[in-house]
Amino acid sequence: MKKMLSSLGSLVAMLLSVSLLTACGAAGSNAPGGGEADSVKVGVLAPLTGANAEFGKGFEVAMTMAMEEVNAAGGINGKTLELVFQDSKGDAKESSDLCRQYVDNEDIVAVLGDFTSTACMADAPIVKEAEMAILSPTASNPAFTEMNDCTFGIIGKQDADSRYYAHYVLQEYAGVDNVGIIYIESDWGNAAMSNFVDEAGKIGLNIVEMASFVQDEKDFSSIITKMKAANPDHIAIMDQGATSQIINQIRTSGWDVSLSTNGPGTSQQLIDLCGENCEGLLLTTPFFFDPENEKEMAWRDEFTERAGFAPTVHSVNAYDCALLISEAIRQCGDDITRENVRDKLAAIDFSGGLTGQIKFDETGSLDRRYIICEIVDGEYVKRAGFDYPEQVAAGK
């Protein structure tokens, strides 16, 4: 059972944010309250600028694709779906200010986003005041969905991800004995680190050094020096936005230690920014495009053409979230209220997207499984499938 725990931004700030965003087509809007009376409006919070802009842009492109599909198929109960995009910049305060704008706008029936767990956790008490659902494609700190009965996330739980990372990626697949951890100081980063450390203790994976950094940090030389002195045979990087900088600075320091990451998923931007420096990088993802699946590959090609970069699991989840909230609204019939949308979302059983069945547990989260990927010759290659834990147990 979920825990029942339960300022508007200035007009100038709102107008500036509206003017800076590009239009998302006739059915979309970039300002609360925009659009026609026969539309159903859902607010979106995403880091369209800043360190996590690749992921925010992925949200925008993927959700717009979903919105266009819904509307092309007749909309929702005779109404068009309208997504209202706002730039949170990856900042928790900015996100909560924009979330407050959505709450105060009676036309908004639900919120999609934000990207980081920290931002989502700042938004959770605000949506609870209005009994309005917030559905994040990417927030994986389990504390987020446990905050109240309005919080939902589809990427899975960070505790399961981090434990899989320590056990199956590093110990079983890579054969790591001694690891150094570099992680971001955030709600997500602290959860990733603590669950990794806990699992490492249980399986006998030796952590020789740990170091944290704050968002927007640029110089990692002192952390790298500290790690080198501990002499690990592997470095685990837990972050989304600074991973490429850390990798590049490790390699330019002359250190050829093996690397893995938990956070950015199969990001094309990571490969573009790191080049040969990220060859051999290991990572996990709960979704990987199957070259034999025509639907998945067609979606991937369209997204890439629109965005200018290939999608990650974060973009795929964003697409599924837009379809998911549309289905919850459709199930409301003529009684489309915030509370009703929230209740329909909590009870939903949905398989109409790309990531498989979505059926929330009592905390508003999902159990996901993971595959292992490696960067080889500038491309992501699947190294172990969803059944890898069973293979390990069977001694294969």
Rank of each mutant, 00 (worst) to 15 (best):
I224P: 08
K79W: 01
A66T: 00
K79I: 01
E36A: 15
G378S: 10
A51Y: 06
R338K: 13
N206C: 03
A160E: 08
G34P: 00
G113R: 02
T363V: 05
K93N: 11
E129T: 02
A229E: 14
V109E: 09
M147G: 01
V111T: 05
A200K: 09
G308A: 11
E106M: 03
C373A: 13
A310N: 03
W188Q: 10
A92S: 14
V197Y: 05
E36T: 14
S221H: 04
G33S: 03
A347G: 09
K382Y: 01
E131P: 01
N141Y: 00
H314P: 00
V61G: 05
N293G: 05
D349Y: 11
M132E: 06
G333W: 02
V376I: 15
E82T: 10
G204M: 04
P137Y: 02
D114R: 00
R306K: 15
Y165F: 15
V176C: 11
E68S: 08
C321D: 15
V316P: 04
P286W: 01
M4Y: 06
I325H: 06
F309K: 01
A160C: 02
I154D: 08
A394L: 12
E217T: 15
P286H: 14
E106H: 03
T80E: 12
R338Y: 09
R342D: 01
G353R: 01
